[in-house]
């Protein structure tokens, strides 16, 4: 891009400063972080308060709404926050547009697949399907 005398005012500033996008991504990352602060604390506190950590106690806990619902939220918000965070990392180090797009798309697929697997496990526990 030329920034010589012949450049228009728009030409001089294009590519500099705000890209007019990314604000929502930035805010979403912070809102999910606050949600995960609550959900993560819930997860640790639950493990501490359970009568035991054997598979039977754990399964009974995750079958009920007080276990299943927050855990489903932890999975969904956790994968979303991880995806947003990994995107920041990828955008910082992979500048070539093609590679950047491919890696971010693969990360999106991995996050959605991972969340689907975890949610299937929770549904199977709650409604009895996997065994």
């Amino acid at each position: 891009m030329s920034i010589g005398e012949s450049s228009t005012p728009l030409g001089k500033v294009r590519g500099l400063g705000s890209a007019r996008e990314g604000g929502e991504h930035w805010l979403t990352e912070r809102i999910t972080s606050i949600a995960l602060l609550l959900l993560g604390s819930w997860f640790i506190a639950s493990l501490l308060l359970l009568p035991g950590l054997d598979p039977h106690t754990l399964a009974e806990w995750l079958k009920g709404p007080t276990g299943a619902i927050p855990m489903a939220l932890l999975v969904i918000v956790g994968f979303k926050h991880a995806l947003d965070g990994m995107k920041v990392f990828v955008d910082d180090y992979v500048h070539e547009p093609g590679s950047n797009f491919v890696i971010n798309t693969l990360l999106l697929f991995a996050a959605v697949a991972g969340a689907a697997i975890a949610l299937y496990a929770l549904a199977a526990l709650a409604f009895g399907g996997a065994q």
Binding site: L58, A59, V75
Partner: peptide, 16 residues
């Protein structure tokens, strides 16, 4: 972290 969390939940769902 998320891989192990998913594995843990799936292991609980699949049984002993």
């Amino acid at each position: 972290g998320l891989a192990i969390l998913s594995w843990w939940l799936m292991a609980l769902a699949l049984g002993p």
